Computed example of a mutant assay.
Amino acid sequence: MAHLNIAIPPVKIRGGREWRDLTALTYHHETQPMPGPLSRQAHLLPRWFHKGEVLGNHFAQLVVPFFLFAPLLGLWMPGPVPLIIGGVAGVLIIVTQVWLVVTGNFAWLNWATIVLAFSAIGVPGAFIRAPAEGSGTLPLYWIVITSAVGILYLVLGWPALRNLFAHRQLMNASFNRWQLANAYGAFGTVTKERMEIVIEGTLDEDPDAATWREYDFKGKPGDVHRVPRQFAPHHLRLDWLMWFLPLGRSLDDWFTMLLARLLQADAATLALLRSDPFAGQPPRWVRAVSYRYRFATREQRRQNGVVWVRDRRRVIVGAAELP
């Protein structure tokens, strides 16, 4: 079932200070859930450019969407102007979403928005432009149907609209059993550091003297020499869950199960990864270690050929074995 959402741009304005002091995009390209092949280049752009990105984001999400409704003025204001205004608004939204596609991997979210924004370019004119000569006014049945749908959506969307101005604003929520006119908002705050959980395994019997080898994921950062790939609109759910993991206060049950499946060398689980360092053989032990990842500077890239620079922080899960 397709869900109709009401986006919540104010969640950013009312969220982290970085959206108000225009520094959010200084961190975002590096700390977003799953960077793309051009994310590093975007991160290394000047600070003044990142501030411009934030201003453009606020304009595209807080101002432009209202102009998508301009073609409705065609009912009272014949002529091309309302359609042009709506079309320009659609183009601006598409441009900002394409920038997000180019600089990141946000699964299908940007693509869905682009498809919807295209509906503002020219298509509404088929319904609201002045009728052909001799055809009279708009058919009564069309006015009744569209008015009924509009009123119904306003009724369903009222709780989500009230949520926009609530003191305790809900970022992602549904307000009716049909999940229509939901509240949606993302990245109310931007993380300043990129912490990654790296899973390691070993075939050695003694974990204290073992040689540990890393499991490499398809999308999330791992090997510091590997350039991130473009996966969107495909959604690598496991890689996204791994991004959320360091943000929680405790390890989730799914992560414990993931470690257990790796100890079993479960084929279905290994298929979710980029590579298995043990070629299908069950490891004796596995553990999880946290690292701080940063994009390499241009000089570090030239000298060492690395995309990321990382430093080890601590062991999250000590050596674990099957019972």
Rank of each mutant, 00 (worst) to 15 (best):
I199K: 00
Y291C: 04
G134Q: 08
E133L: 14
W142Y: 12
L152H: 05
P221Q: 07
W142S: 14
D216E: 15
H234W: 12
M34K: 02
S39V: 01
F278Q: 03
L247V: 10
Q61R: 02
I151A: 15
K220C: 10
L180E: 05
V98E: 06
V101Q: 02
T137L: 12
I316Q: 13
E299M: 11
L152I: 08
G79P: 13
G56K: 01
G134H: 07
L138Q: 11
I197A: 10
R162H: 11
P323A: 14
E133C: 10
S119C: 15
F66V: 12
L44M: 13
L259W: 00
L161M: 14
V81A: 13
V144N: 07
Q97D: 05
Q230L: 13
T23E: 04
R261I: 01
A70C: 11
E196N: 02
F67Y: 11
D21N: 01
L140C: 08
S290F: 02
G305N: 10
I85H: 11
L116T: 14
Q281D: 13
R14Q: 11
E200L: 07
Y184C: 04
F244R: 14
V115P: 08
L247K: 02
P71W: 01
L68R: 04
T137G: 15
G90R: 00
P10G: 09
H43C: 04
